[in-house]
Design a protein around this nucleic acid. Structure first.
Length: 523
RNA sequence: GGCGGUGUAGCUCAGCUGGUUAGAGCGGAGGAUUCAUAAACCUCAGGUCGAUGGUUCGAGUCCAUCCACCGCUACCA
């Protein structure tokens, strides 16, 4: 029975246009999913759309559509974007689907019966645009206008259903203490603990006047389940089926830092509450919440007012110029996976592309293929005479491998990428030291040339395996050219790849076009 | 206001529990080579390690204070 691995992205707000933020989180999830599949695990990778916000109704009206039509149209844009980028998600959940709605109802019903959801009264300043209440002090700070769109806040008092978050601060703190890796990066965990220790209030989880859009509170049609609560449950509803239930608890939730509180405080508390209900004993807490930071665009914060979002059009432009895999490489290697924001800047992209992908990885693959072609008639030779420098190569490659695995396991994609590229750097150094191209002129050295090229081939096999979750298409092409076996599902191909001397001689090696053609900026 | 973080060569950053002349990559300069994508290779950076004051035989590396910026959060108006 293979180990299971369940990874999620947030479900994306269907009123948004897909942009670099969505693409980034989903790409990171995709890389994690591919890596874990390579580890031989049974992976379930989920993404989707969050559709029950009241603003969806407004936007639909503005476009002369029904809310459902509008949601359909926009959800399709996300689906297309992820499809175009080759994401390997196993399912795409939409909160307007019956399979989601029916289960959310059951969960909330159960928590009402257990007393963790109760009817109470809430008074506050409501921001209709954000569908959020602001506490009195906060509202005053913004002069009773929405901090987002500047529209006046509305003083509202209403009966609401509340979730008893206040009852879970000890439970949350204990969980964070017992599971040090529950929330990464560590800086976020400190923030979270600090905030929990300041005290937790119960949170309203329903609103009124939703006009039939959204999921009604069980037994009270006048209330609709607050969209955030509805949305969080997607992680559970999608796998709450007989054949998928074993994927719960979710292994990893990936998300951006702005929605950390919902995922690392409210969501786990809700799961604790639900897990106490009869029939839901199987509902445990997710293994890890991984909160990355933001991309900024060419040094400036992305904002609607600046209109400088890196949108799909711009992303497509990068894909056309550099390829999807190069985009993935940049996102992984230079992205805000840690606690600080990163700059999506063309100059950084081109530098990474030329210096690492073209000059090191692509060039290395090409370099060896050419030599095999010239010195061995394009056929991978059997090893020949010993070459002492090979020991250094193996040591370097294994050291890189051993840095890569823990980096991937902790979602430090930047470090993982660097380690993987180091394999190719080590191979370059090895070639420079041993100079097979000089030895090739001396017939007495034919045996060492064969050995050198075989060693290089091993390095390429291992390096391409490490890079394959990040650049599946290009690394697949390397495997094809060199005749390497494709990783088989269900076995830990990553662990197996570490061993040396796995490539059989006698297979032909194809040179092919440059893997990553050097990019010349238009002068 | 509180808590936390960051501030190291032109740029992007490494520097774990304090210890020989403070590192890498990129950019820039020179050289060498030809197996490779006009690329890969070698050499070259004398930078108050944000500021000041401490602890110590010895501090980017610990302590205090201050400055700048960032994050979470509170409060006042």
């Amino acid at each position: 029975m293979p180990e299971r691995f369940y990874v999620t992205t947030p479900i994306y707000y269907v009123n948004d246009r897909p942009h670099i933020g969505h693409v980034y989180t989903t790409t990171v999830a995709d890389i994690v999913a591919r890596y874990e599949r390579l580890r031989g695990k049974e992976v379930f990778f989920l993404t989707g759309t969050d559709e029950h916000a009241a603003k969806v109704v407004d936007s639909a009206e503005a476009h002369d559509m029904t809310a459902q039509e509008w949601a359909d149209r926009n959800a399709a844009q996300f689906q297309k974007a992820f499809e175009d980028l080759g994401m390997s998600h196993d399912d795409f959940i939409r909160t307007t689907e019956d399979r989601h709605k029916t289960r959310v109802l059951r969960y909330v019903q159960a928590m009402m019966e257990s007393g963790d959801v109760y009817l109470g009264e809430y008074e506050g300043w409501y921001d209709a645009g954000q569908e959020e209440y602001l506490p009195e002090n906060k509202a005053r700070e913004f002069e009773f206008k929405s901090p987002i769109n500047g529209k006046p806040l509305v003083k509202k008092s209403e009966k609401n259903y509340f979730f008893r978050l206040s009852g879970y601060s000890d439970g949350l703190l204990a969980h964070l203490d017992e599971h040090p890796d529950f929330l990464i990066p560590p800086a976020r965990k400190n923030e979270l603990i600090g905030r929990i220790e300041e005290g937790l209030n119960d949170v309203p989880i329903s609103r009124t006047g939703a006009d039939g859009w959204g999921i009604p509170m069980p037994g009270d049609e006048t209330h609709t389940i607050y969209v955030w609560i509805d949305a969080l449950f997607n992680y559970l509803t999608t796998v709450d089926t007989d054949d998928r239930r074993a994927f719960w608890p979710c292994t990893m939730h990936l998300l951006a830092k702005d929605i950390l509180w919902f995922h690392a405080a409210i969501w786990p508390a809700m799961l604790m509450a639900l897990g106490k209900c009869p029939g839901y004993e199987w509902v445990g807490l997710p293994g890890q919440v991984c909160a990355h930071s933001f991309w900024i665009a060419e040094g400036r914060k992305m904002s609607k007012s600046l209109g400088n979002f890196v949108d799909m059009e711009r992303i497509q432009d990068y894909v056309e110029r550099f390829g999807v895999d190069a985009l993935r490489y940049f996102l992984a290697g230079y992205g805000p996976v840690g606690a600080s924001d990163r700059d999506f800047a063309e100059a950084r992209f081109i530098e990474a592309y030329n210096k690492e992908l073209a000059n090191v990885v692509g060039n290395g693959v090409n370099r060896v293929a050419t030599m095999v072609g010239k010195y061995c008639d394009g056929t991978l030779p059997e090893p020949g005479d010993p070459v002492p420098e090979a020991e250094d190569l193996r040591t370097s490659v294994h050291a890189a491998y051993d840095r890569y695995v823990p980096a991937m396991d902790s979602v430090r994609l930047d470090q993982a990428v660097e380690a993987a590229v180091d394999v190719f750097r080590a191979m370059d150094v090895f070639i420079d030291r041993t100079q097979p191209f000089k030895r090739a002129k001396d017939p007495a050295e034919a045996g060492t040339v064969r050995t050198i090229l075989r060693e290089c081939t091993e390095a390429i096999r291992i390096g391409s395996t490490l890079l394959s979750p990040i650049m599946p298409e290009r690394m697949g092409e390397v495997w094809r050219r060199y005749g390497f076996a494709e990783p088989a599902p269900g076995v830990d191909s990553m662990a197996a790849a570490r061993a040396w001397s796995q490539v059989a001689g006698g297979t032909s090696v194809e040179k092919g076009d440059p893997l990553f053609a050097r990019y010349q900026p238009p002068a």
